[in-house]
């Protein structure tokens, strides 16, 4: 088995498929032509930039560039998640809540992976560290984002029931336990369904990549299994931390519901 390099012409050939999307949008007056074009250009530019940066970081194989790249990755993903939330906690705390738990959980599990499982040398070797961190944090961010959404929506919708419980002298964690449970479930469901359908609906992206790169499918499957375990662990931690953090921020130390801390709905 050998790795087949793609030429620029190959990519142009593949991009022709987007013309179908454009034609559909035009035919049904979906007004998506511009959106499709922008998304496609963004994708190409972003991936090219990432590839370039990764090349530089891999070449140095040093600690600080690796860390810097990890932080840049985090900032971009947090911004992406936070800007898609329907109702978020106002101010920088909203971003901290969206990014903090996934990043910390992702960092811990990635360290666990490169040190204890893979045994990379040095442990921060960017070729292992960065892709694994990226995958884990990306998934944990999605889970935490669901938690934040579900909790903010649930607390707003169940405001009267929550305040009735608070008025009876229940603590904020008791009064919000139903919403919190719902939010944690919502945050965990995607990774559960990913695990239970892995390989059935489609070969997972990373495994596909390894197979295309010429790896033995069994070895590729092992890596995929490891990464899914890591993602599941990190998502669990991030989801729980995001749920606790949300409850803390949506209430105050006097056990009051503080929906005033939510930004107005963007619709």
């Amino acid at each position: 088995m050998s790795y087949v390099q793609l030429s620029t012409f190959d990519l142009v050939l593949a991009s022709l498929l987007l013309l179908i999307n454009g034609a559909i949008s035009f035919g049904y007056r979906l007004n998506l032509e511009k959106g499709i074009a922008i998304a496609a250009v963004r994708m190409v530019l972003q991936l090219a930039l990432i590839a370039l940066l990764l090349k530089v970081v891999f070449a140095t194989d040093a600690f600080w560039p690796t860390l810097l790249f990890a932080l840049l990755m985090l900032a971009a993903t947090v911004y992406e998640v936070a800007s898609h939330q329907s109702r978020r906690i106002a101010g920088w705390m909203g971003y901290a809540l969206a990014g903090g738990p996934p990043f910390v959980a992702g960092l811990v599990t990635t360290l666990f992976a490169v040190v204890a499982i893979i045994g990379a040398d040095p442990w921060y070797a960017p070729r292992f560290f960065l892709p694994i961190l990226g995958m884990i944090v990306g998934n944990a961010l999605a889970g935490a984002g669901l938690v934040l959404d579900t909790l903010a929506d649930g607390a707003s919708r169940d405001r009267q029931a929550i305040e009735a419980r608070l008025a009876l002298g229940q603590s904020r964690f008791v009064a919000l336990q139903d919403v919190m449970r719902r939010a944690v479930r919502a945050g965990m469901l995607p990774i559960l369904s990913t695990m239970s359908t892995a390989g059935i609906v489609a070969i997972p992206g990373m495994m596909t990549g390894q197979i295309l790169a010429g790896a033995d499918p069994a070895e590729a499957a092992k890596y995929q299994v490891m990464i899914l375990f890591l993602i599941a662990g990190a998502t669990g931690l991030a989801v729980l931390a995001a749920a606790f953090g949300s409850v803390m921020l949506l209430t105050d130390e006097r056990h009051r519901l503080r929906l005033d801390r939510l930004e107005a709905s963007k619709g």
């Binding site: 169940d158 009267q160 029931a161 929550i162 305040e163 009735a164 419980r165 608070l166 008025a167 009876l168 002298g169 229940q170 603590s171 139903d178 130390e253 006097r254 056990h255 009051r256």
Partner: peptide, 23 residues
């Protein structure tokens, strides 16, 4: 009220809303 935990305060000072809600 600020001298005691809010939960203890509301166990003593009970607000009964005009719009009761159930969970």
């Amino acid at each position: 009220r600020s001298e005691m935990p809010a939960t203890a305060w509301r166990a003593m000072v009970r607000y009964v809303s005009a719009e009761p809600a159930w969970w």
